[in-house]
């Protein structure tokens, strides 16, 4: 799955692997500063007058999708359990907030707390069912739960049935802009920190070989559930705010199956199992989809399908993963891999 020889030749002269490797090391060493800088840059546009309108909405949605993609990646990329039903957390969070705000007349912040509680309870039950499954079964079970919840929501009165809920008197757009930005920055910080801890190592170990992790004394169910709840927390927060941001919620938008695929595609294109990958993927893909949506109405999902196929077949490691592999291509040899006592063929299971 390498890049074409001619483009990689050009790339090699502009950005040799060694230099890129140093760049990655630099980013790794200054992760906190990068996240901080990102937060500042993200906070700037409204300061310079962008307070409403189309661009404001697009940027807010980019943060929103970055939250969703990064949350998916905690379980899908870091832990190796690719869920096709993360939007269930989103929808539950959205409906819980909408019901609390509209029917129980509580304020937005309190409703968000209620939504988080609802999502975590749901995630705990859901996790109990699906985290015992692996591979195909896990993926389909998560999708099944998403669709079941969607159907139930469609048929209940409290959720407004198929016509959904319209929300009035919502806070102005700038509140959601900063809300999504803040949640994203906090989530990036949390994920970045966790990847350096024992907890993060254990998640990666479960991804690589769950049986071995168990044999080493890790109760994997416990860690999988923790990762699942963390993903649910951030997805639920995003969902809770989304209903008010959008002023409207129905089963089709709240449990949007296409979005679920979209956020997986974002994580995959950016690079799964990394902090920056899903965020980069979300910004990139959302920009493209937004452009196609406004220029070629109705074709954005065709593009999404094609983009997924091409990514999976050509760049399954995503932007960050591909670049990292390129940066590290020689290090095995340079760091004495071949000088070791063993002379067998190097396994190249890239």
């Amino acid at each position: 799955m390498s890049t074409d020889p001619d483009t990689s030749g050009l790339l090699r002269s502009i950005l040799p692997p060694k230099r890129l490797d140093r760049l990655f090391d630099l980013c790794g060493a200054h992760g906190w500063k990068l996240i901080g800088a990102g937060a500042v840059v993200g906070a700037l546009p409204p300061v310079f007058g962008l307070r409403e309108g189309y661009m404001m909405t697009v940027l807010s949605e980019m943060f929103l999708f970055a939250i969703l993609a990064l949350s998916w990646d905690i379980v899908g990329g870091q832990t190796g359990y690719p869920s096709f039903g993360n939007m269930a957390f989103f929808g539950i969070g959205g409906y819980a907030t909408a019901i609390l705000v509209k029917d129980a007349a509580v304020s937005f912040p309190i409703a968000m707390v209620g939504a988080v509680v609802a999502v975590l309870v749901f995630a705990a039950i859901n996790g109990l069912i699906v985290l015992r499954l692996r591979g195909h079964y896990f993926a389909i079970a998560t999708l099944g739960i998403l669709l079941a919840i969607q159907q139930v929501t469609r048929n209940l009165d409290i959720t407004g049935g198929a016509s959904g809920k319209i929300l009035f008197d919502v806070p102005p757009g700038i509140v959601f802009y900063y809300f999504f930005l803040a949640v994203l920055v906090v989530e990036m910080a949390v994920v970045y920190y966790l990847t350096q801890t024992r907890f993060g190592f254990i998640l990666n170990a479960i991804r690589d070989d769950e049986g071995k992790a168990t044999a080493m004394g890790f109760n994997t169910t416990y860690y999988k559930t923790a990762a699942w709840m963390l993903a649910a927390l951030f997805t639920g927060l995003a969902g809770g705010a989304y209903g008010l941001f959008n002023t409207f919620l129905d089963p089709q938008t709240a449990y949007n199956g296409a979005w679920n695929v979209e956020l997986i595609a974002m994580a995959l294109m950016g690079g799964t199992g990394t902090v920056a990958g899903p965020v980069i993927g979300a910004f990139g893909l959302h920009t493209i989809i937004e452009y196609v949506e406004s220029s070629f109405v109705g074709w954005q999902l065709v593009l999404l399908g094609v983009a997924i196929i091409v990514t999976v077949i050509r760049f399954p490691k995503g932007v960050v993963g591909t670049l990292r592999a390129y940066a590290n291509e020689m290090d095995y040899y340079e760091r004495g891999g071949m000088a070791a006592t063993d002379d067998e063929e190097v396994t190249t299971d890239e």
């Binding site: 590290n328 095995y332 891999g337 000088a339 070791a340 063993d342 190097v346 299971d349």
Partner: peptide, 15 residues
């Protein structure tokens, strides 16, 4: 010692 930061999957079977 030199391989501490290499991805373990890249190592040979013996390693």
């Amino acid at each position: 010692g030199g391989l501490a930061d290499t991805r373990a999957g890249r190592l040979s079977f013996g390693q």
